[in-house]
Nucleic acid binder design. Sequence first.
DNA 1: TTGTAGGCGTTATCAG
DNA 2: CTGATAACGCCTACAA
Lengths: 321, 321
Amino acid sequence: MTNIKDLAQMAGVSVATVSRVINHHPYVSEEKRQAVLEAIESSNYQQNINAVHLSKGKTRLLGVVLPFSDHPYFALLLKGIANEALAHNYKLVLFQTSYMESREIEALQMLRQKQIDALIFCSRSCDWSTIEEYLSFGPIVFCENMTGKPVSSTYVNHYDVFFKALNLLYHQGHMQIGYCIGRRQGTNSRGRALAYTDFLNQYDLPYRLDYIIDECLYFEDGAKVVKQIKQMSSPPTALLVTSDQVAAGIMTCCQKEGIEIPDDLALIGFDNQPIAGMMDITTIEIPHLEIGKNLFLQALNGWEKAHQEVSATFIERSTTN
Amino acid sequence: MTNIKDLAQMAGVSVATVSRVINHHPYVSEEKRQAVLEAIESSNYQQNINAVHLSKGKTRLLGVVLPFSDHPYFALLLKGIANEALAHNYKLVLFQTSYMESREIEALQMLRQKQIDALIFCSRSCDWSTIEEYLSFGPIVFCENMTGKPVSSTYVNHYDVFFKALNLLYHQGHMQIGYCIGRRQGTNSRGRALAYTDFLNQYDLPYRLDYIIDECLYFEDGAKVVKQIKQMSSPPTALLVTSDQVAAGIMTCCQKEGIEIPDDLALIGFDNQPIAGMMDITTIEIPHLEIGKNLFLQALNGWEKAHQEVSATFIERSTTN
DNA sequence: TTGTAGGCGTTATCAG
DNA sequence: CTGATAACGCCTACAA
């Protein structure tokens, strides 16, 4: 492997000059520049990026923490981040955590050790106190409302969105509304849970534990939901489903089981994924790509803390009355 | 940021000794070890990983090239790789290419610049001649049959699998068989195309261009397929669909359109994804996780070239006769 | 415009 | 067992 020292010798200049032409610095005579360029060409020179990293203290590597990449929500977030990273010549290091705290800590460690310049948490399991220990090692940004904390965040106000959706169903005549969610933990899920209880209180509706169905992530989870509903003596007449995939699965199963949609069961999905369009599912669109883009930019400008709320759009289709 | 020089001073030893205890080398007196450990503790020392990389010439970073991560096939491959990477304390750098050659080349460049130790191509667009230029910079492994080339590969014999599936359909009485595929390019797709034409020739069946439907990747693409089929004067009676997601989409649309499955249209999916189980779709199981694991191991043991064929399993369910 | 030399933080070799 | 010291390859004052 030839290095800049070799190049310097070949071109009859100093290493500094070689470095200058490599990094497109001004103040290099055209003559020497050509000599260096020629040396690079003929020697098949390749910069050792690790040396650059060591010297500069930066890697142009950005960490992305997410539980799994095969769920459309995270896959789209990832795509949004990746697009912007590409534009800024950054690469992504992926941390698939399965919600395991230990893997999140691995990511934080890499930040601490300077192997990545910044870190994006698309979702997290660890406490804020854990995060706090690593704040000084580089920018850490979040896809959940972190207002008040000394970090940046881009998020959807899930409380609001949920509350509005519930109200909408209520005004369509539904008194028995349930919801399906991926997991109960997490800021976003808790925001939704709060909206749900607040909604129930507002209209003096009973809180029914079995109206909340969790671990709903994929299409096939729709089967589980329908099965559970069928066993209820007084099933919900409407369901808020936090993923269009699951909503589609529910719809498919309902057809088999003879449950009419929306008459027997109204459905509101989330994300406005293509599958929702195809199956004509009422849904709430979340601008994943935009969120991903913003997360990246916040990570890039780590010093200026900001909290950006993005809005969701209601898209009415045939699964609501 | 304190470094090992500082530690050495604090502990009253040399940097070499500090390095030894950090790297758990033998031959360090317990006394000095303790001194160093204390210094590390009190100084909140953190190793600068970039310096280690430069010194060792390795990064414990592995590149993974795939077109998109939101497709179950690639997401599962990725998961398999990630699992094994975790076990070996490697991290993954993701290259989402959208089949763009330029991004594949970025990945190859990172290998050349030693920012990653090895590279896995889950799918590729670039020519072998391009790959060839980078062979000397580190292990490159493929998820397609690369027998004869000086690299490692783990793959499914798609020709065989396709041929067998077609024969099965034929012996169930189907003479008009079509197939849906993600894209026409790529070794795997070409293997399937070849199996298809060989099959047709074997039974002297006509080659109908419109029986081959490409760009079928997601559930929602099923709508497109059904629409196309409905327009044909003589539609296929059976369809080989290279993704269960798409097969499920087709099935869903067929129900709407009153097309009976399997009587009007038999369906064989691919991958044995959960959705296939839920919808009782006949499918061909591919051991993605195992393939991912093997790809990782091949990348790790880059010097020994190997080509491993993994087998697929036929799972008969209700979408075939 | 150019070159020298020191620094980035570790690892590893080689004497002792 | 331990410590100098030379790599690793590049960047960048600083001096010329």
